[in-house]
Design a protein around this nucleic acid. Structure first.
Length: 584
RNA sequence: CGGGGUGUGGCGCAGCUUGGUAGCGCACCCGCUUUGGGAGCGGGGGGCCGUGGGUUCAAAUCCCGCCACCCCGACCA
């Protein structure tokens, strides 16, 4: 394949586009790979499209290799399947909805679980047909509240997603492992230095779930990792709970006057001043903060939930949301307090709480049996000291909703947790029977009994991966593609006006492309060498061959874009060298 | 949805405070010169100044509304 820059549909920009902040967005636009068409929507230009296609090809190879089969669905779908699964409503504002000329509701698919499920239901009805693995590589649509960072979060994007169908849990586990291994191979081939983190399966329901995250300050996901190798999305981090302790010797709880202490900070100040401890000053983590929330259940009914966390921590609404899924949590409003007079704003205490009182009460795992707390006494201006968990109050359970901090002990006991940002490039999870149940996907098992199929779901953001690779490889000169995804294998350029250089380059272009390499040939006349060098670096093809002033000595220059490593060699040796480096 | 910012030729920007009919650099076209690190000189094409209304003899510039885009947050398999 020979791409001649004299006729390639490409215009590089000398200056950075003003609307691009993150490196991948800035460079992909500047190098002429993509152009913005709308907020969150991009046109793929020839070079960009080649990168996208190469990534797709790698994904298809690995999916095919595990026996998955590709299918293709419409992006424009009728409402009914999504009504049946509940997602016509659950998906909320993120769903692009539209009407046809008859007024019938349609949507632009944000993902295709329903269609896969219904397709299998349509054709298969026996355990003998399973396991089955299907996948698609398609454009998805989500009306994101805020598209950003170029390809990293768009309203239209390319995604590969696959689904596994099994008759039992063991089958699902095997299908999951199979995909997991394929994903490892895919991301390794893309050259991405990813981290696999435990994740919550979120709105999709299901059990086991892992994300593939590319650590990057431009990423939107926060995850933690430990020195010992534990890694998890913040939503899935498990808190190390202290051992339950005996409270036989603990002092009795006592109520004290703490006027004007509606916040933890004011409370601690008053405790230090009026009720000093003997061993050390009071700190915020001695107090128990009870955060009141209102849950909206899927059926539309409301129910209050109180979450108790150590006073030095806030409730992380994302972590909470993942825990109460599919219900939706919101802060308790003044009107809500009015409806629940037992709750004294600013002085809520465990003694007024509990499922038996209609106020479900869950605590952070740090609030372990036997631990004493200073907390609200359910009266304005009063707190209770030495209220012991398990003796003076019994929560309805524990909940992982407190904020996670760098330095918190890791669940694997290997030391403090580190907090980092990253780009989610893949997500695999065991979906379970949720969709199969509601869409009635059942097969006959060996006993002739109808059983609900269990599913797995496995996604890769393909267009996002283009940005992720760019993001993890660029340097100050421009893009810097790994060979596996580069739009060409070799960037060949003629420098100078020497006819002989031109002849040598023409011959090399011919030879390399005939040998099966894709050559991006900068054959532009009347373009100065400086411009060509700068473009070559910006475009980021892994190998750069220059036919220029050394041609008179029978030599061309050979450069590895990423390392800057250079050599001069005879034109006749270029092909062998390209082969050698391309295989590396 | 809340906060901040920006809309002037393909790209990056100035002009707006103090109204007088649009400019610079890059890119593009023609000619000559140049040709190893984003060339020089000369000539040229291209802009209802985001949009609607208002004020005024006159609006890119002042006033009001709307829209779009970018950033932070909320949101987001």
């Amino acid at each position: 394949m020979l791409l001649r820059m004299s006729s390639l549909f490409l215009r590089t920009l000398r200056e950075d586009p003003a609307d691009a902040e993150v490196a991948s967005h800035r460079l992909l636009v500047r190098a002429g790979y993509i152009r913005r068409v709308a907020s969150g929507g991009f046109a793929w230009l020839p070079l960009g499209l080649r990168v996208l296609r190469k990534i797709e090809a790698i994904i298809r190879e690995e999916m095919d290799a595990i026996g998955a089969q590709e299918v293709h669905f419409p992006a424009l779908l009728p409402r009914e399947p999504y009504e049946a699964s509940g997602r016509w409503n659950d998906y909320g504002d993120s769903l692009f909805r539209l009407k046809d000329r008859r007024g019938a509701d349609h949507l632009l698919a944000p993902t295709h679980e329903e269609l896969f499920t219904l397709l299998v239901k349509d054709l298969y009805s026996s355990y003998k047909d399973l396991p089955l693995w299907l996948y698609q590589v398609q454009t998805k649509y989500r009306d994101e509240a805020r598209p950003r960072a170029g390809l990293l979060r768009g309203r239209e994007f390319v995604m590969k997603d696959s689904y596994s169908f099994d008759v039992d849990d063991a089958g699902l586990a095997a299908s999951y492992e199979r995909h997991r291994a394929a994903y490892v191979r895919i991301f390794d081939r893309l050259g991405l230095d990813y981290v696999m983190v435990s994740a919550m399966s979120g709105a999709m329901g299901g059990s086991r779930s892992e994300e593939f995250i590319l650590p990057s300050p431009n990423g939107e996901d926060t995850f933690v990792r430990s020195p010992g190798g534990y890694a998890a999305n913040v939503e899935a981090v498990t808190t190390v709970a202290p051992q339950a302790v005996s409270y036989d010797d603990a002092p009795a709880a006592r109520v004290v006057d703490t006027p004007d202490t509606p916040t933890i900070a004011t409370l601690v100040a008053v405790l230090i001043e009026r009720f000093p401890r003997e061993d050390r000053p009071w700190v915020a983590s001695d107090t128990l903060k009870n955060v009141v929330l209102m849950l909206r259940r899927p059926d539309g009914t409301d129910e209050p939930l109180v979450v108790g966390v150590p006073g030095d921590r806030d409730v992380d609404m994302k972590r909470l949301a993942a825990q109460v899924e599919p219900a939706i949590a919101r802060p308790f409003a003044d009107a809500d307090f009015a409806a629940y007079p037992a709750l004294v704003k600013g002085y809520v205490g465990p003694q007024a709480l509990g499922a038996d009182k209609g106020l479900r009460y869950f605590v952070d795992p740090r609030v372990a049996p036997g631990t004493p707390w200073t907390t609200g006494a359910d009266e304005p201006g009063r707190h209770v000291v030495d209220l012991v968990c398990g003796r003076d109050f019994t929560p309805d359970g524990t909940i992982e909703a407190a904020e996670v901090r760098a330095g918190d002990p890791a669940p694997d006991g290997s030391g403090p947790l580190e907090l980092a940002r990253g780009i989610e490039i893949g997500h695999i999870f065991q979906l379970g029977r949720r969709y199969a149940e509601v869409l009635d996907l059942r097969v006959l098992d060996e006993q002739g009994k109808r059983v609900v199929v269990t599913m797995g779901s496995y996604g890769i953001g393909v267009s996002r991966a283009v940005a992720a690779v760019a993001e993890s490889t660029y340097d100050e000169l421009g893009l810097c593609w790994p060979a596996a995804v580069a739009p060409a294998d070799v960037h060949l350029l003629v420098a100078g006006k020497d006819d002989k250089a031109r002849t040598v380059a023409d011959r090399l272009a011919q030879e390399l492309s005939e040998a099966g390499h894709t050559v991006l040939y900068d054959d532009r006349a009347r373009v100065s060498a400086g411009v060509k060098f700068a473009d070559a670096e910006l475009l980021g093809i892994p190998l750069i061959v220059t036919a220029g002033r050394r041609v008179v000595d029978g030599l061309v220059e050979f450069r590895v874009r990423r390392t800057g490593e250079q050599a001069e060699l005879a034109p006749a040796d270029v092909l062998a060298r390209v082969r050698e480096l391309a295989a590396r």
